[in-house]
Nucleic acid binder design. Structure first.
Length: 233
DNA sequence: GCGACAG
DNA sequence: ATCTTGTCGC
């Protein structure tokens, strides 16, 4: 049995243990069977955050891309002060405030939101993407660069994928978006979307470009934009 | 038994 | 996440 409470700083323990309860409650209410279908997806927004610990400031950015034309239709950003440090399994507590503020600034309603991190691929079934999808009532997908938990059959060939299993449950998919030396990315459902659609959306945005990228285009662009607005090209 | 641990 | 040079491979 893993103990995910051991790395919680004493200072934040009271608060984070309450958040843990919320995660467990939200996990039960997620819509993961039906939700949006690929045909209904037109605008996809990628969200990412860059940090400047020196000045205790962070910048969250969102870039919305049209799935048909691959054109950027909107870019937004906002600054905010992180309230807690990064604690494994509580990423939402650190980056969530920036995303909620940012979402309100978006004018053209996206159909799907992509986040750096996990959805249900989380020890309590409720990662960053799921928590936000629940609060905003929007279809969301989590895309992580490192595996938080679970196992999958590898090695993967370029373009190949494999289910991520944990406690005999399929919690996501490992997808080899780039050739061999590179590690795969880990896709999981946030809310209001099924795994198949989530994987198709991410795959689409990593392959339909002239230059292959590890992360789906909206996330790649949001990452650049957030860093740019923090003055750290 | 200890430790792993999204960004 | 972020700090950063050289270095390996196609």
């Amino acid at each position: 049995m893993n103990d995910w409470t051991k790395r919680i700083p004493e200072k934040y323990k009271d608060h984070l243990l309450k958040v843990r309860e919320q995660q467990l409650q939200i996990a039960k209410k997620l819509e993961l069977q039906k939700g949006i279908s690929l045909e209904e997806v037109q605008l996809v927004a990628g969200f990412d955050t860059a940090f400047d610990d020196e000045n205790n400031i962070a910048c969250s950015a969102a870039v919305t891309v049209d799935i048909e034309t691959l054109e950027t239709v909107e870019k937004q950003f906002t600054y905010f002060k992180p309230k807690i440090p990064y604690v494994p399994t509580f990423l939402y507590e650190r980056e969530g405030p920036g995303y909620k503020k940012l979402f309100q600034q978006i004018k053209e309603e996206p159909d799907v939101l992509l986040f750096d991190g996990n959805g249900i691929l989380h020890p309590f079934g409720c990662g960053l993407a799921s928590q936000i999808g629940y609060e905003l009532k929007k279809p969301t997908i989590g895309v992580a660069k490192k595996l938080l938990l679970g196992t999958f059959e590898g090695p993967l060939k370029e373009g190949g994928y494999s289910e991520i299993i944990h406690h005999e449950q399929v919690l996501g998919v490992a997808f080899q978006s780039l050739p061999s030396p590179a590690k795969p990315i880990f896709i999981s459902q946030g809310n209001y979307i099924n795994l198949k659609t989530a994987v198709n959306v991410v795959r689409f945005f990593t392959q339909t470009q002239q230059f292959q990228k590890k992360l789906p285009l909206p996330l790649f662009l949001a990452h650049l934009f957030a860093k740019e607005k923090l003055g750290k090209e």
